[in-house]
Each structure stands twice: as structure tokens, then as C-alpha cells.
Design a protein around this nucleic acid. Sequence first.
DNA 1: ACATGTGTAACCGTAGCGCTTACATATCTC
DNA 2: GAGATATGTAAGCGCTACGGTTACACATGT
Lengths: 160, 160
Amino acid sequence: MAASCRFAFAIHIMAVLAYEDRQHQQGLTSEAIARSVNTNPVVIRRILSELKGAGLVVTHKGASGGTRLAREPRSISLDAVYRAIHGGPSFSAHPQQPDQRCPVGRKIEIVLEEVFASAEQALEHALALRTLADVLEDVSGPEVPATAAQGRTARPGSAA
Amino acid sequence: MAASCRFAFAIHIMAVLAYEDRQHQQGLTSEAIARSVNTNPVVIRRILSELKGAGLVVTHKGASGGTRLAREPRSISLDAVYRAIHGGPSFSAHPQQPDQRCPVGRKIEIVLEEVFASAEQALEHALALRTLADVLEDVSGPEVPATAAQGRTARPGSAA
DNA sequence: ACATGTGTAACCGTAGCGCTTACATATCTC
DNA sequence: GAGATATGTAAGCGCTACGGTTACACATGT
């Protein structure tokens, strides 16, 4: 199978932005994010564009511009990121209409629609249980006073 | 997005086989199934091959051969079909390793693995709530004495 | 003005999918 | 055994989506 990794990229981006928000209260350029994700800045911008459309991030153009989270990490659940990135449904129906003269083919599409919808709903519900703050904690440990974190952390994308 | 429709095909195939099992206690050829699904017999055979590998169907080669369910529809849940068809995971990780010098990039892969696993698990759990018998009921109504169904049903693939 | 960074368009190579043809193999029927 | 039937695969085609890249117009802070 091997699906698209855009969702993985999106969570990574959001995590980096959340991390930056906590550390420096400053926006990040697509180039800096791209360094952390290890891909091309345009790929990042394309995903940022979708995240922006969902109201999850805000972008500032021009010199000293960049992107920041639009809300607190605690208020951003992963299903919001999922929906922002995910264009269509995870499952796909018949490309050609099934034989309507067959009793099964006549009704299978409706049944499948229900099955797919409930599965998709369960998936999103599972993602809704985690927020970006949870991810941030897993990535960088629980939030601590700035002094305690001194010297232990680096700014995303500042390594190269 | 628009994912693969192999899962839809697989459920359709299983439903047709279950329907046939109830009506005629006889196997179906890939050609007959293909008529109901409205695709090529080889496409059906490829999916049947995976279903067979999962022990969900049994196949008989040669003249008057065909495929039948290996078990009762009631004992086949849709997540079994899903796993039989689904090669890899639904979500995909980073194609290139994230920047290990970035504190987020260093740990994001592990976090994503957890997130993806829990989402996939929720998805399969939702599918496990439905069996092939449920699908069959939705498609052809509750099981009734053969006489009551006389003249109302046709054999899958017998229309063309 | 100039440097910086976003927003897009365009293109490339790759991969997977649905579909088809073709053919070897196995099995039932006569 | 001969022929008919059906599976099991390999190989190829066209399509689509994706990740990656280059290029450039536009906006904005210094």
C-alpha cells in the first residue's frame, strides 16, 4: 500500500511550530521547517497552505516573515490536522457502477458507504484523543520553566 | 486523495460469495463475480488470491471450478477482509529521515508511529463490529425460507 | 531600494492502480 | 486420453498522485 506521507509531514510541521512557539515566540520560515523535516521548502509551503486554510496556522509574508500556530497547542487535536490535509475519503468506492441487475451489485454501494463512513469516523475519533500539546510533550518532555531548559534544546532548523 | 478501491471490491466479492452460498450452495467463477463488480476477471482473481491467502475463501481449479466462502458469513468480520487486502499501513512515515539534530525531528518518528498505530487500531475495531452476514442482510434482506424468496432474487452474474 | 520569504505554476521521475491480453497449469467431463 | 473449463501469473498500458525541484511574481520588513 504505502499511502501518502503528507499527514506525517503535517504533524511534524505543527510540532515544530509548537516547539518554536514555546521556545522563542517567533515564526518559522518554510526553509527552517524543511530542514527539520528533511525535504524541500516548497513541499512544506504546500502543506502549510492547507493548514492555513483550516485556520491552524497564520503566515506572515515578506522579510522576517514566517508561520506560527494560530491557536494554543492544547486546543489543536490531531483530527483537525488530519482533516486539513486529507482531501477525500480514505476509502474508495467502485470506479464503475456495479451490475444493477445483480441483487448484490444493486445495493452494495449503499452498504459500503455506511461501512466506510463508520470506519472513517472511528479513525478521526481516535486522532481526536490526542492534541498537539501531547505530541509536543512526547517530543520535548513536559513543559518546564525556561531556565531549566537552558542549553538542552536547540531551535528547529538551526542545526544546519 | 482517492485511495484504492480494492477493499470495496473485496467486500463486494465476499458479499456475492455469501449470497451465492445461501442461494445455491455452489462456487462462483471469477468471470461471474467480475460481471457483478463490473470489472475484469483477472482483477477479481488477484483479490481472490489475497482472500484465499487469509483463509477466507477456498478455490477449486479446473472445469466446474470456482470459489466459495471458507467459513460462515457470521464468522467473518470486515476487519478480516481489510487485513487480507491491506498490504501495508494506511499511513506513511517520512520518506527521508528527519534532521536528527533538531529536537523535534529526533523524536517525531516514534511519536508518529504511536499515533498511526492507535488510529489504525481504531479503524480495524470499527470494521470488526460488522460481519459479512450483516452486509448480506443489508444487501438482500434478512434470511428467509427459500420459498418466500422465490422469483425475487437472481443469481449473481447471471444477468448478462 | 533591497533583501527576505511566501505563493504558485510547471515539470520530472517514481509508484501504484485498474485494466487487458496471453498463456501455462490444473481439473472435471465425456 | 481428449477436450473443455477455470485458475494463477506475468507483462504491458494509460492514468493519477506524490515528492522533489526550479523558477518567478508578489508582498513586506529593514
